[in-house]
Nucleic acid binder design. Structure first.
Ligand code: FES
Ligand code: FES
Lengths: 144, 144
DNA sequence: TTACATGTAACTATCATAGTTACAACTAGA
DNA sequence: TCTAGTTGTAACTATGATAGTTACATGTAA
């Protein structure tokens, strides 16, 4: 199991819109950098738009940032592209046997632990902004 | 996306072996509590055995714990049943465009952040032992 | 009116999960 | 030694998500 690359692509898109801010970031342009199909980009941009992270309009070329990148954390992107449902990072087998002491209690015993772990993951993502990522890219680019 | 229920089933199996320690925990017995097929249980028990968590022998009925449950954390089970590969909780789209400043740097910029998040998740799982889960089950069972 | 973008639907290929059936290998007890 | 019962595995199926692809209606602006 792996969390969908929509997440990394979403970050990529936001970073590239920023770095290309003097140009026009069409889905085709973005697709060229990510190396995928423009329709895939448009789908993901639609999700970012739904979360209020970018501005796009039908017929008008180019996506723009709707917020300052320092106000967008990776957790925001993660939520926007919907790669993991609320409280459902871990799946729990359903229909355990209610006639068994373990079967009728293990879900209640396990779920809070799973939720805490998911929270820890998400908190970690919330500590990094997309601006941090862009700064890192710029730094790496200047060195090499 | 969701992490395989092999994980929750693995925890279930270990907890039930403990609670049923005076009886014989065959794959059929365990399957009755988890509510699945005995072959599914045998596959998962094989993984738990590979990680040194349980003892089983061909032809001999019943699985037993190979360690004290207080020495088995949920992280140990998680590793054992192989639900998430090392450093691969998040998938990153490959083949980004090397001619693009973002394309050629974003992987290096993102991967450490993803790894830190995965580590946070795993550390959280490491804080809970299967014994904690069993104790919780017993407590819930006595109250109700 | 023309050229070009976005938004979406429909479809495909690929893969992991979970379950199912079947059977060989093995053990222990009659 | 036979027999019954169990584990370990392979092979197969059904289901669902991912990622990509094509196509096209809708919309904008020169
Ligand atoms: S089936 Fe999940 S704990 Fe019993
Ligand atoms: S950062 Fe992933 S393709 Fe560019």
């Amino acid at each position: 199991m792996s969390i969908s690359s929509r997440f990394s692509v979403g970050i990529h898109i936001l970073a590239l819109i920023e770095i290309n801010k003097n140009g026009t970031s069409t889905s085709e342009f973005l697709a060229g950098s990510v190396n995928t199909n423009p329709a895939v980009i448009r789908k993901i941009i639609g999700m970012l738009k739904g979360a209020g992270l970018v501005k796009v309009q039908p017929g008008i070329a180019g996506a723009e940032l709707a917020k300052n990148l320092s106000d967008i954390t990776l957790f925001d992107v993660y939520k926007a592209v919907n790669v993991v449902q609320e409280k459902e990072l871990f799946s729990v087998h359903d229909n355990p046997n209610p006639d068994c002491p373990v079967g009728r209690n293990i879900q209640a015993a396990i779920v809070p632990v799973f939720e805490a772990a998911q929270k820890a993951l998400e908190k970690s993502l919330g500590n990094v902004s997309v601006e941090n990522v862009v700064d890192d890219i710029i730094k790496k680019e200047n060195i090499s």
